[in-house]
Computed example of a mutant assay.
Amino acid sequence: MIARLLAVLMALCLAAPALADELRPTSIQFVQTDAQTWQIGWKQPLSGPADNRRAMPQLPDICRIEGEPRREMAALAIIGSATVRCSGDVSGQSIAWPALAGQADAIVRVAPLGRPVQIHRLTAAQPHAAITAIPSAAQVWRSYFVIGVDHILAGWDHLLFVIALVLLVARPWPVVKAATAFTVAHSLTLAAVTLGFAGLPQRPVEVLIALSIVFLAVEIAKGTRETLARRLPWLVAFIFGLLHGFGFAGALREIGLPEGEVPAALISFNLGVEAGQLFVIAIVLALRRALVRIAPHREAAALRVASYAIGTAGAYWLIERIAA
Rank of each mutant, 00 (worst) to 15 (best):
I79Y: 09
G114Q: 04
T132H: 09
I65Y: 09
S81V: 13
R298P: 08
L12F: 12
M73V: 09
G88Y: 14
I65G: 01
L271E: 08
L318C: 12
A125Y: 10
V162H: 01
A129R: 08
G114D: 00
F246G: 02
L100T: 07
A286P: 12
A101L: 09
L252Y: 10
P49I: 05
A178R: 01
G276F: 07
L46M: 12
E261Y: 15
G247E: 04
L285E: 04
G41P: 04
N270L: 08
A35C: 02
K222N: 05
H186L: 02
A111K: 12
R231I: 05
L291E: 10
V292D: 13
V218M: 05
C63I: 14
V8A: 11
A264W: 14
K43M: 14
C13K: 00
L12S: 10
P17N: 08
P112I: 03
G314T: 14
P17W: 11
L168G: 01
I28P: 04
Q103S: 15
S268K: 09
A133V: 05
V262I: 13
A313S: 15
K43L: 15
R71F: 15
V140G: 05
A302D: 12
A300L: 14
A130F: 06
V146A: 13
V214G: 04
V292N: 10
R293E: 08
L208H: 00
E68H: 09
R109H: 03
R225Q: 09
P57Q: 11
R231F: 05
W141V: 15
A229Y: 02
L278P: 14
A300R: 14
L167Q: 03
L160N: 07
L59G: 03
L232N: 07
D21L: 10
I62Y: 00
I131F: 05
Q36V: 09
W317T: 10
F248P: 08
L59M: 07
L5E: 09
V149P: 04
L122C: 03
V140T: 15
D51Q: 03
Q126E: 12
L188D: 05
P204R: 07
V8F: 08
R230C: 04
E68R: 12
Q29G: 13
T180D: 02
A306S: 13
G114Y: 09
Q58W: 10
L195T: 06
T37L: 07
D21A: 11
G250A: 13
A129P: 03
A106H: 07
A170F: 03
L59W: 12
V207R: 08
R24L: 10
A178C: 01
Y144R: 05
P172S: 06
G196P: 01
V117F: 13
V108E: 07
D157V: 11
P204S: 03
T33C: 00
